[in-house]
């Protein structure tokens, strides 16, 4: 595919391979670099589309367009990360995107990011101004005369965000999404600014699942309750809740608390057994280490 072809060129994988061939060595650092590069390439593939005529990795020409306010403005910055948004005021998605991007822009205040929006000259200026004002968008709005820039990029969707790095290389293309749109845009900008790693970007694009509860969670709560009951000398209930915790998820923490409870009752033999069981699960558990020391020192 054309997109991946150009990405390979820009990713530097070929250069890395040549370097490896000439040295014939695979050091840990190089393997790590290769893994990072591969992760980066996998990230590119997460967004299956790009502008029809401008694939990811392409160096974008910095054009100057008439601005809605007055005069002309550049599409991109030649030295900073640039974010440009093709908007179509009046469309529901475009309206929603404008509001979210305005919020996003505020969060990046003070960061070296160049922002601009592009609208077709087909849309009445008053309509554009009204939407920009309503959303609180404070960036130059460029007027694309005769849809020349639309055609040049091959923009087929509204709204669409493009992000270029400090070398004007297109690093992200993001059409509107109903869910997590601002989060993705934010992460893409941070990634272009090198604030976050490839892995952090991947996590933002594909967030980890948020599953409810689970046995470990229930066990932990029983243990916390048992600790409180232990502190208030409610030993019977404490022991019962430790057992409930262990039934759900046997942990060193639960076993060492049982040891502490048994030791407090003077049952050093069983306490030592509990501490030993805890140390089998976690040899560094501090409460168990301390407990076993006390039990051993108290032995006749």
């Amino acid at each position: 595919m054309k997109i991946f072809g150009s990405l390979r060129k820009c990713s530097g994988v070929s250069a890395e391979r040549r370097h490896l061939k000439s040295n014939g060595l695979l050091s840990l650092g190089r393997i790590r670099r290769l893994v990072h590069l591969a992760a980066g390439m996998a990230l590119w593939s997460l967004s299956a589309f790009a502008f029809a005529n401008v694939p990811l990795g392409t160096v974008v020409e910095n054009v100057s367009l008439p601005s809605l306010a007055a005069g002309r403005q550049n599409l991109l910055s030649d030295t900073n990360v640039s974010v440009f948004i093709f908007l179509k005021p009046g469309l529901e998605h475009s309206n929603q995107a404008t509001v979210q991007i305005a919020e996003c822009q505020k969060e990046f205040a003070g960061k070296p990011v160049h922002w601009c929006a592009i609208v077709s000259d087909r849309i009445p200026t008053t309509e554009v101004e009204a939407e920009v004002r309503a959303a609180g968008l404070s960036m130059p709005v460029l007027i694309d005369q005769g849809d020349a820039l639309y055609g040049k990029f091959g923009v087929v969707l509204h709204p669409v965000v493009g992000i270029t790095d400090e070398n004007r290389r297109l690093v992200a293309y993001q059409p509107f999404a109903k869910v997590n749109y601002a989060a993705v845009i934010r992460a893409q900008i941070h990634h272009a600014l090198k604030d976050i790693t490839d892995e952090e970007l991947a996590e933002a694009l594909n967030p980890p699942a948020a599953i409810l509860g689970g046995k470990a969670s229930v066990a932990h709560r029983y243990l916390r309750l048992a600790e409180k009951q232990f502190q208030s000398t409610n030993y019977v209930q404490a022991l019962s809740n430790i057992q409930k915790s262990l039934d759900q998820n046997p942990t060193a923490a639960a076993l060492s608390l049982r040891g502490r409870f048994l030791a407090a009752q003077g049952n050093r033999l069983d306490a030592a057994a509990a501490f030993e069981a805890a140390l089998k699960l976690d040899p560094q558990d501090p409460a168990a280490l301390e407990g076993i020391k006390t039990c051993n020192s108290a032995r006749p």
Binding site: A209, A210, L212
Partner: peptide
């Protein structure tokens, strides 16, 4: 509701436990 939403907190907007497709 909890087929899709986590009533406490999530990493995806609208308290979705995963991205919509997933």
């Amino acid at each position: 509701c909890v087929n899709c939403h986590n009533p406490h907190a999530a990493n995806v907007e609208h308290l979705l436990t995963r991205l919509p497709y997933d």
